[in-house]
């Protein structure tokens, strides 16, 4: 398992998309800070404010795209055939990928904060850090939400062989296209007399709603929701990968 993680990390750091996506996101971060200097009234009061109000959807989108590319790489290149048959426990591949994705998310988050602080100094916007308890509560939940989203992508990459659906589906989820579809489902449910909102349980919607989290009682809902998505996706990925033929 440890060797598998090392192999996946080596692959991850060798991928061009690893650097390209961080580079693109860096530009995005710099532009966000720069745009705030153009306004007479400050758009953001602090770095924390900027992350909470603007960065979250971008972080979800960018980490989602990279996760999809990374997760499908050994299947689309058929590299998996070299080692897939030798695995004592096929689940170890799933866990290895999840661990790599968590490491990627930690790096991505760290780079985001660092870039925003550096950009603030460069453009002299003099934003406060604003890293208070509320921010850390938000950030921990948002981080966990992104991990849950990436584990859902692990499941998607286990289901499909081709790169196209594995990349397109996370983009659709993270850009809330799915929520449009599910609002239609909610309407149908409402018409037939079922009072149930699927949108309430949508992963991306809940991640994007986190900055406006006021009631601390709601935290348990988010924790359970993200945990549920993570565990169910991981278990399903393991079951499917165990049953499916490789390549």
């Amino acid at each position: 398992m440890l060797n598998l993680i090392k192999m996946d990390l080596y692959r991850m750091f060798s991928m061009a998309s690893f650097y390209v996506i961080i580079y693109l996101f860096s530009i995005e971060c710099v532009l966000m800070v720069y745009s705030s200097t153009m306004e007479s009234d400050p758009l953001y009061l602090s770095i924390a404010d900027l992350i909470m109000t603007t960065s979250t959807p971008f972080i979800t989108l960018f980490t989602g795209i990279f996760s999809a590319l990374f997760l499908i790489a050994d299947k689309s290149s058929q590299f998996i055939k070299n080692y897939g048959g030798q695995l004592k426990h096929r689940c170890s591949r799933i866990f290895s990928k999840i661990i790599c994705i968590i490491i990627y998310n930690i790096l991505f988050s760290a780079i985001t904060i660092l870039l925003l602080i550096v950009s603030d100094k460069i453009f002299k916007t003099n934003l406060e850090l604003g890293f208070d308890a509320d921010f850390f509560r938000y950030y921990a939940l948002a981080f966990w939400g992104n991990i849950a989203f990436c584990i859902v992508i692990v499941l998607i990459s286990t289901l499909f062989k081709s790169t196209v659906p594995v990349v397109i589906l996370p983009i659709l989820i993270s850009t809330s296209v799915f929520s449009i579809i599910f609002s239609g489902v909610d309407n149908i449910l409402h018409r037939i007399g079922i009072d149930f909102s699927t949108q309430k349980y949508m992963l991306s919607e809940n991640i994007y709603n986190l900055p406006w989290l006021e009631d601390t009682d709601n935290i348990s809902f988010f924790v359970l929701l993200f945990l549920g998505y993570s565990i169910i996706s991981a278990i399903l990925s393991c079951i499917i990968f165990k049953k499916k033929d490789i390549a």
Binding site: R11, S14, M15, A16, A73, D74, S77, Q78, F79, I80, K81, N82, G85, Q86, L87, K88, A247
Partner: peptide, 16 residues
């Protein structure tokens, strides 16, 4: 399982 090496169909290589 780890005592079996294989090359099945096309070689599985990372193209980049």
């Amino acid at each position: 399982r780890n005592r079996v090496g294989c090359l099945i169909e096309a070689p599985g290589l990372y193209p980049d």
